[in-house]
Design a protein around this nucleic acid. Structure first.
Lengths: 123, 123
DNA sequence: TCATACTACCTCGCCTGTCAATGTATATAA
DNA sequence: TTATATACATTGACAGGCGAGGTAGTATGA
């Protein structure tokens, strides 16, 4: 019932931006890298990946260019823009907040019984 | 651009289950509680909340009954079932894994430069 | 008494992101 | 020549979130 892509949903774009920070890349490689980082526990489906690229490029968070391979399949490389980098930084900060928020919504607050009703102590 | 509800998406159901663990509750109260826990940084929109209730009840993760208020608006209370509790526990475990996964995808792996290519050390 | 606000529930229809399925093209190894 | 890997792209179905709208009771104060 819990579909991982639903959790990731809001973060596919940010994940792509995060990877592009480390240098230009293209779809296929980027996805392999993601699989490798997550020990193959996660991958972006191709359809998802390429629609995300379109979205990001339409909004000027990345720009693309064709590689000049004279052998093998052609590759479309992507570069993160300054705007994209800013977005990445913002989203990263948000992520840390959201993480804590979900944690506090999913887990018992400590000291149950010490106080009669739940209190959020870590904020 | 980063819409919180997209991140939460996969977790609205689990959040509801988590709250019901602590005792029966009804929509309005549950949402107030969520707002209070998150310092009003988050709320479930009513439409989202009630559709989630339907979904969860259809799948037998919760059951509902009408409160016997003889004053004020009627309330529909929800109880978490054994099946719901199991789901909650599973999803909570998944959350901890997914959290780490997203972290590793968004953030630099430590020791950059120490190793020439990214490695996931925390797994 | 009338307006306003809060409690409490519900539904319709749009929007957006995911993804299965499908298609294209090149290269290489069996 | 058949299969597999690389590499990109699109279409259409599906699901969840949610704005907008609705119902109905209670309370308060002007």
């Amino acid at each position: 019932m819990l579909v991982i892509s639903d959790v990731i949903r809001g973060y596919t774009d940010t994940i792509i931006l995060a990877q592009l920070r480390e240098g230009d890349s293209y779809g296929y490689e980027l996805n392999k890298r993601i699989q490798s980082i997550t020990d193959s526990e996660f991958e972006l489906k191709e359809a998802t990946l390429y629609t995300a690229f379109r979205r990001l490029e339409d909004d000027a968070y990345i720009i693309s260019y064709w590689g000049d391979e004279n052998v093998g399949a052609r590759r479309r490389y992507y570069t993160i823009t300054e705007k994209g980098l800013e977005l990445y930084r913002e989203n990263l900060q948000d992520w840390d907040k959201i993480k804590d928020m979900i944690d506090s919504l999913l887990k018992d607050v400590c000291c149950k019984g010490w106080l009669s009703r739940p209190l959020l102590l870590q904020r």
